[in-house]
Design a protein around this nucleic acid. Structure first.
Length: 484
RNA sequence: GGCGGCAUAGCCAAGUGGUAAGGCAGAGGACUGCAAAUCCUUUAUUCGACGGUUCAAAUCCGUCUGCCGCCUCCA
C-alpha cells in the first residue's frame, strides 16, 4: 500500500487511484524563457522517481506536463535575445529536454504547450463566464474568488487575511483585489490571440487547468509541482477547474521542496541559481541525481559544492559494489562445488532488503531511506564477496546473479545507472594495451621484490591521473576524474 | 500582519508513541611488501529550550527561541 502526503489534507493518505491500476498525473512544467536551474531539475527528478516507482508497483502511469510558452516574460526575453517569442520558447524547450535527458529523466508522455491549446482555454473561460464565476472587464477576464466558496482550501488561507498583506496589486478593473486573470488583454499585434474579449493571451493559471482536464479528465490522480506553486498557482487551478467541472480536480496534491543556496531559495528572479548545464559541467548527472534523492522530496535542500562532493563519495561506494559484482560475474565459476547452506541466508537477506526498500518508497516515496537501504545491501554484498575464503563456485555465482539483479532493479527505480560517465571506460584500445604493458612490467618488478621501482610506476601513473590498485583479484587501474 | 514548514552526532540525513537507519569525516583492527579498495569494531543514554499528556515521546499538546517558504513571477 502506498501512502502519500497530500497537501490538500496535510496528512499522509492511502493512495487509491480513480481507475484501478492506472495513475494519471500532471506535473507543472516550466516557463521556457531560460535554461533550467537545479530547482527545476529537482522537481523533474522527483516526479520521475515517483512515476518509476508507481510503474515498479505495477501501475500504468500516464504522465503529463506542460511548457508555458506565452507570457510577458517570454516576450521580454525574446527581445533581449533578439528573436521571436516562439523561437525563444522553442530554444529553451529543447534545452530543457536536453537537460532532462542528461539527468536520465524520462520525458513526460506528453508536454502540452499553451500556444497549442488556446481554443480549449477560451472554451473554458466562456463556461466560467456563463456560470458567473468570471467576468469581463475592458478586454480582460477575471475569476472572481468570492464566487468560489472553497477558495483557499489548498493553501489554508482566506481572502480577508491575504488582503492584509497588502502586496496584491489593486487594479481598478478588478472587482476584488484577489481576483486573477483568465484572459489578459495584450497590445501586441504579432504575438497575441483573438478571443471573444479581444486580442490577448491566457492568464497564467488557466493553461494548466484546461490542458490537464483535456488530457486526463476532470478528475485525475496526482498533481505535482514545487511548494512555491501552492499559492497562488495551484489554488487558482483548483478554483477555476472545480468551478468549471463541479468535480474534484486532483485527488492528491504533491509538492516538492525548493533547492536553496546558502539557505535561500534558488530562483530566477533572485538571481541566485545554478543552471542545470553549469552544474553538469562540474559533476556527473548521476551524482546530482543521487544528491537530490538523499533528502526527502518535501524538505528543502541546500545546494553546495562540498555536499555534492560528499554525495560523490557516497555514490561511488554503491558503484564499486556494482562493478565488483559485474567483474566477478564476467568470469565462469571454476569450482563446481556448491555450499547450499549459505544460500538460504543470503536469499533471505536479499528479500528483506527488497521489502525494506519497498516499505520506504511506499511511505511517501522516502528516497533518502531507500538509499540508506541500498547502502545496507551494498554492505552485505561486499561482505559476501570479500570473505577470506571466497571462491566463485556455481552456487555463489547464482547468488551474485540474484544480488546483482535486485541491486540494479532497485537502483533503477531511483533512476541510478550506477556508473560515472567521465573516466574509466573512455579510452582507446591502444591505450588499454599500453596500460597492460606498463602493469606487466610493474608486476615483474614486484615479483623481483623491487618495491621502489614498482611504487615509482604507481606514483608516476597517479600523477598523470591513473589510479593503480593491487587487489586480491590482481592489479586494477582506472582513470581518475579530473574535477578541478 | 496572515498561512505553512523546519530544528536529530563534527557535517549531511532517515525516523510521527515503544526505547536513535544510512552516508561523509574521525579512531582502532584484519588484509597488503607498501598503498588503495574492502571487511570488522567504534563515534548521539540522546533528538533547539522549557513545561504537559502517557506505563512509555525525537515522535502527541502548549509556550518560547532560531531559521526558512508562501502571501509578487517562480519547480
Amino acid at each position: 500500500m502506498i501512502r502519500l502526503y497530500n497537501t490538500m489534507t496535510r496528512e499522509k493518505e492511502e493512495f487509491i487511484p480513480v481507475e484501478p491500476n492506472k495513475v494519471k498525473m500532471y506535473v507543472c512544467g516550466l516557463t521556457v524563457q531560460n535554461y533550467s536551474h537545479v530547482g527545476h531539475i529537482r522537481s523533474a527528478v522527483n516526479y520521475d522517481v515517483i512515476r518509476k516507482y508507481l510503474e515498479y508497483k505495477g501501475y500504468q502511469v500516464e504522465y503529463i506536463s506542460n511548457f508555458t510558452d506565452i507570457n510577458e516574460k517570454i516576450v521580454a526575453r525574446a527581445e533581449e535575445e533578439n528573436m521571436t517569442p516562439t523561437e525563444l520558447a522553442q530554444k529553451y524547450e529543447a534545452a530543457f529536454l536536453d537537460d532532462i535527458a542528461a539527468m536520465n529523466i524520462r520525458p513526460a508522455d506528453q508536454y502540452l504547450r499553451v500556444s497549442e491549446n488556446i481554443e480549449d482555454i477560451i472554451e473554458m473561460v466562456k463556461v466560467l463566464i456563463d456560470k458567473e464565476y468570471a467576468y469581463v472587464a475592458e478586454g480582460n477576464v477575471y475569476f472572481s474568488v468570492e464566487s468560489f466558496a472553497d477558495y483557499g482550501k489548498l493553501s489554508g488561507r482566506n481572502i480577508e487575511d491575504m488582503q492584509a498583506g497588502a502586496r496584491v496589486d489593486i487594479l481598478e478593473d478588478k472587482k476584488h483585489p484577489m481576483d486573477f486573470a483568465l484572459w489578459k488583454k495584450v497590445n501586441n499585434e504579432e504575438f497575441s490571440w483573438d478571443s471573444p474579449w479581444g486580442k490577448g493571451w491566457p492568464g497564467w493559471h488557466i493553461e494548466c487547468s484546461a490542458m490537464a482536464m483535456k488530457r486526463l479528465g476532470t478528475t485525475f490522480d496526482i498533481h505535482g509541482g514545487g511548494t512555491d506553486l501552492i499559492f497562488p498557482h495551484h489554488e487558482n487551478e483548483i478554483a477555476q477547474s472545480e468551478a468549471y467541472s463541479g468535480e474534484v480536480f486532483a485527488k492528491y496534491w504533491l509538492h516538492n521542496g525548493t533547492v536553496n543556496l546558502s539557505g535561500e531559495k534558488m530562483s530566477k528572479s533572485q538571481g541566485n541559481f545554478f543552471t542545470t548545464r553549469e552544474v553538469l559541467k562540474k559533476f556527473p548527472a548521476e551524482v546530482i541525481r543521487f544528491f537530490l534523492l538523499t533528502r526527502h522530496y518535501r524538505s528543502p535542500i541546500d545546494f553546495s559544492i562540498p555536499q555534492l562532493k560528499e554525495a560523490t563519495v557516497s555514490l561511488e561506494r554503491l558503484i564499486k559494489t556494482a562493478d565488483q559484482m559485474e567483474s566477478l560475474l564476467a568470469d565462469n565459476p571454476e569450482d563446481k562445488q556448491n555450499n547450499l547452506a549459505t544460500t538460504d541466508v543470503f536469499i533471505a537477506m536479499l528479500k528483506e532488503k527488497r521489502k525494506s526498500f519497498e516499505e520506504a518508497m511506499d511511505d511517501d516515496f522516502n528516497t533518502a531511506k531507500a538509499i540508506g537501504i541500498l547502502h545496507e545491501l551494498a554492505g552485505e554484498i561486499n561482505k559476501f564477496i570479500n570473505q577470506q575464503s571466497f571462491k566463485l563456485n556455481e552456487n555463489k555465482y547464482f547468488l551474485l546473479t540474484e544480488a546483482n539483479k535486485l541491486y540494479r532493479k532497485l537502483a533503477n527505480v531511483l533512476g541510478l545507472k550506477l556508473e560515472l560517465k567521465d573516466g574509466t571506460k573512455n579510452y582507446s584500445s591502444v591505450f588499454a594495451d599500453l596500460m597492460e604493458l606498463v602493469l606487466e612490467l610493474r608486476q615483474e618488478a614486484r615479483e623481483e621484490k623491487e618495491w621502489e621501482k614498482a611504487d615509482l610506476i604507481r606514483d608516476r601513473l597517479d600523477e598523470v591521473g591513473i589510479e593503480v590498485k593491487d587487489t586480491p583479484r590482481g592489479t586494477e587501474w582506472n582513470l581518475k576524474k579530473r574535477d578541478e
